[in-house]
Structure formats: C-alpha cells, structure tokens
C-alpha cells in the first residue's frame, strides 16, 4: 500500500437534486482502491478551460470500500471551476487523476458518544461516519439541517441507519442547539460540518454549554471562503508575477503559473501549503496559523488566504 496518485474512471453520474451530483469512481486499471476511513476525502484534478482545478471531496462510500468510491458534488453557483466542470462536462467513462485518501476529520476513537450536526451538503463526511458506527457499534446521533424539500435527497445513504434527525426552517422543526448541547453525558464528542455561519454557531453553542474545545470538531474545508478582491502576487524564487482573480485562490493562481506548491486539504486546515511571505499584508482565513504566527506576518496559507493590499511577495 504505497503510492501517491491514482487514475480513476467515472463509473456513473447521477443527479440526486438540482444542484447535487453523485459521482461513482473506480480504479481506471480495474484494480482495487486503497481502503479509506470514515471522514476521509480525496483530491480530484479537474480539467477546466485553460487550466486545471484541484478540489477535495468527502468519500461517502462505506469505510474500507475498495471496489468503488462515491462522492457528492454540489454545484457552487458562482463557480467557473471544479464543481461546474463536474456538473457540466464530466462524462461516464472519463478518467481523472486523484490523490490517495486523506483524513482531517476522523471520528475520535476514545469518544463514548458521537454527536454530529450537518448543514446541507455538510452531511457528506457523516454518511461514512454512520456506516462506521453501524459496524463498530459507536453510540451516535446525527442532526441534519437543510431545506425541507432536501431531506429525502440522502435517503439512499441513510437506509437502515439509526439516530438520524432532520431539521428545517419551520416552527417545530428548527434545531434547538442549546438544548441539544446541554444534555450529552461526559465523554461525548461533537462534530459540525456545514456553512461557515452554521459551524460558528455550533461551536459557540457548545462553548456556552461548557464543552471543552478538545471535544468539538469542525470540518472546515469545502466551506471555506475562496473568493475576494483580485490582487497580484510576486513569486520571488520563480520570478513570476501572478494575477489572483476574484473567484480563485492564491494557490489556484500559483498552480496556474506552473509553480509547484505542496498542498493537502485546500481549506486552510492542514498547514501543508504554508508559504513564506516576504512583503505585503495577508488577510488570513486559515485555521492553522497561531495568532502569534499571524501577527508575525511571515507565513501565509495560499489555499484560502488573500492579500489585504493589492500585492504580496511570496518566497516561492
């Protein structure tokens, strides 16, 4: 089990909702895929017009599956990149380059109980959690907040699963976070995954109920802000100046210029892409750098962070 990249073939594409596409992937050579854990994701390299995108998607297939991987891709309304490509151009039979699975959101094995809160498409990592807990016997509850008409979209992945409740914006159906978070016994771990505002609200409600931060986990990537004002970045080692567009990340622009930049989560969580900042002030949007590192102003995470002024100089 040694390797870095995989060739995958699209086995099937299904639209499960107007903006949600289910993609089934198999090994292009007909062999077996590496097993992956609950909460794992893969990075896909997606060819776009004139450039390629690298997007990370949670695996929703059962943990350990080696015959096929399933992902669910939401069409981001403003996207001209990866999600648009998957929704508009990708065909069954196409092959894609993918990373081996990574995992920045694995369930905590010492937990006595797992409490999950998902917002919309944020349910995806929890679909594999549910399969894991069904197998390992982990006590759990999943609360999904979505639009009322969306609550049956994930039914194929929830068949036979216990402990799942749906909430939507109508009297008697809203999630009462303070009440939910006041009750659990010691040893419970909380996991939230959804839009940034929902994540923040869940984390704040847990803190207000006295939860120690060590028991509160949040999947940031996918929900991270990507766009912002356009700016320029000069890559000092390479001697290249790149223009970073409003709807792309600094990392996207660096890759477009053909400069190698290691990366993993593309969501400001893992720290792999941290780059030395020589000039300019960063607008930090990551979850990795410490307050002291941010204040020092010597590092930037180009996958999510941008320029406060019009220009940055990176030592790349």
């Amino acid at each position: 089990m040694i390797g870095q990249t995989l060739r995958l073939k699209v086995a099937a594409l299904t639209d499960i909702a107007p903006s949600l596409r289910h993609v089934r992937l198999v090994a292009a050579d007909g062999g077996k895929l590496p097993p992956a854990a609950a909460g794992a994701h893969i990075q896909l390299v997606l060819a776009g017009p004139g450039r390629s995108f690298r997007n990370a998607y949670s695996l929703v297939s059962r943990p350990g599956a080696r015959d096929a991987w399933d992902i669910i891709v939401r069409r981001v309304p403003t996207s001209r990149g990866g999600s648009a490509y998957i929704h508009e151009a990708l065909q069954a039979g196409d092959t894609l380059e993918a990373s081996w699975p990574g995992n920045l959101f694995a369930p905590v094995r010492t937990a006595r109980r797992h409490l999950m809160i998902a917002g919309g498409i944020g349910i995806t990592p929890f679909l594999s959690y549910l399969a894991d807990f069904a197998m390992s016997g982990g006590e759990h509850a999943l609360h999904v907040c979505c639009r009322e008409e969306e609550k049956d979209v994930f039914a194929p992945w929830l068949a036979g699963r216990s402990g799942v409740a749906f909430h939507w914006d109508a009297d008697g159906h809203r999630l009462d976070s303070p009440a939910l978070l006041a009750a659990p016994p010691a040893g419970t771990h909380l996991y939230v995954c959804g839009q940034a505002a929902m994540n923040d609200e869940g984390i704040a409600a847990a803190a207000a109920a006295g939860w120690p931060a060590s028991h509160v986990h949040c999947e940031h990537f996918g929900a991270a802000l990507v766009g912002g004002a356009a700016f320029r970045a000069f890559l000092a080692k390479s001697g290249i100046e790149v223009q970073v567009g409003e709807d792309e990340s600094l990392l996207d622009a660096i890759e477009r210029a053909g400069v190698a930049a290691p990366c993993l989560c593309r969501g400001g969580a893992c720290g792999v892409c941290a780059a030395p900042l020589l000039e300019g002030e960063a607008e930090h949007r990551d979850h990795f750098l410490s307050p002291a590192e941010r204040n020092a102003g010597r590092l930037i995470m180009p996958c999510v962070s941008r320029a406060k002024g019009g220009r940055l100089v990176l030592d790349l």
């Binding site: 040694i2 870095q4 590496p34 081996w100 990574g102 893992c270 720290g271």
Partner: peptide, 12 residues
C-alpha cells in the same frame, strides 16, 4: 510530531 500528524496514507 507535527510532521507525523500529517503522515499520508500510501506514503510511509
């Protein structure tokens, strides 16, 4: 420790 926390599947 920081390095090992990021150790990747398939890359021992």
């Amino acid at each position: 420790l920081k390095y090992l926390l990021m150790l990747r599947l398939g890359q021992p």
